[in-house]
Amino acid sequence: MAGLLALLGIANDPGRADRLLIVALCDAALALIALLVPWDRLHPNAPALAGLGGFGVLGLSTWSFGGIAAGTGPFLVLLYAWAALHFPRWLLAAYALPATLAYVVPLIITGQSPMVIGSAFILMPAALAIAFLIEAQARGLREDRARLARIEQWRTAMINTLAHDVRAPLSTVRVVLEELRESSTGQHARMLDAGLRQTARIARLADSLLDVHRIDSSGELKLDRAHHPAHALVKDALSYVRDDADVRADVDEDVTLYVDRQRFEQILLNLITNALRYGAPPVIVRVVRAGAYHRLEVRDHGPGIPETLRPRLFGQFAAEGAQGVGLGLWIVRQFAAAHGGEAAAEAREPGVAMVVTFPVPES
Score class of each variant (00 low, 15 high):
Ala102Gly: 07
His43Trp: 15
Gly54Pro: 05
Pro44Phe: 14
Ala127His: 02
Ser113Lys: 13
Leu60Pro: 03
Leu76Gln: 04
Gly54Glu: 06
Val104Pro: 02
Leu91Lys: 08
Val116Ser: 13
Ala127Tyr: 01
Tyr95Ile: 00
Ala50Gln: 08
Ala96Phe: 11
Gly53Cys: 05
Ser64Pro: 09
Ala127Asn: 03
Trp63Ile: 00
Gln112Ile: 04
Ala96Met: 12
Leu92Arg: 03
Phe87Ala: 06
Tyr80Arg: 02
Leu58Pro: 02
Ile122Trp: 11
Ala99Ile: 01
His86Tyr: 14
Leu42Ser: 14
Phe121Asn: 03
Phe55Lys: 03
His43Phe: 14
Ala81Glu: 01
Leu49Glu: 04
Gly111Trp: 10
Pro74Leu: 07
Val105Met: 07
Gln112Val: 02
Pro114Gln: 12
Met124Asn: 01
Phe87Trp: 14
Ala50Ile: 13
Tyr95Trp: 13
Ala70Asn: 09
Pro44Ser: 14
Thr62His: 02
Gly111Ser: 09
Leu91His: 10
Leu91Asp: 09
Ala69His: 11
Leu52Asn: 09
Pro98Ser: 06
Leu60Val: 11
Arg41Leu: 15
Ala120Glu: 00
Ile68Asp: 15
Leu76Ser: 01
Leu78Tyr: 05
Arg89Thr: 12
Ala70His: 11
Gly73Phe: 03
Leu128Gln: 04
Leu79Asn: 01
Leu91Met: 14
Gly53Arg: 07
Leu128Cys: 05
Met115Arg: 15
Ser64Lys: 05
Trp63Met: 06
Pro98Arg: 06
Ala120Pro: 00
Gly54Tyr: 11
Ile109Gln: 04
Ala84Glu: 06
Leu128Phe: 08
Ala81Val: 06
Ala81Lys: 00
Leu79Cys: 03
Gly73Trp: 12
Leu78Val: 04
Ala96Ile: 12
Leu49Asp: 04
Leu92Ser: 04
Tyr95Pro: 01
Ile108His: 07
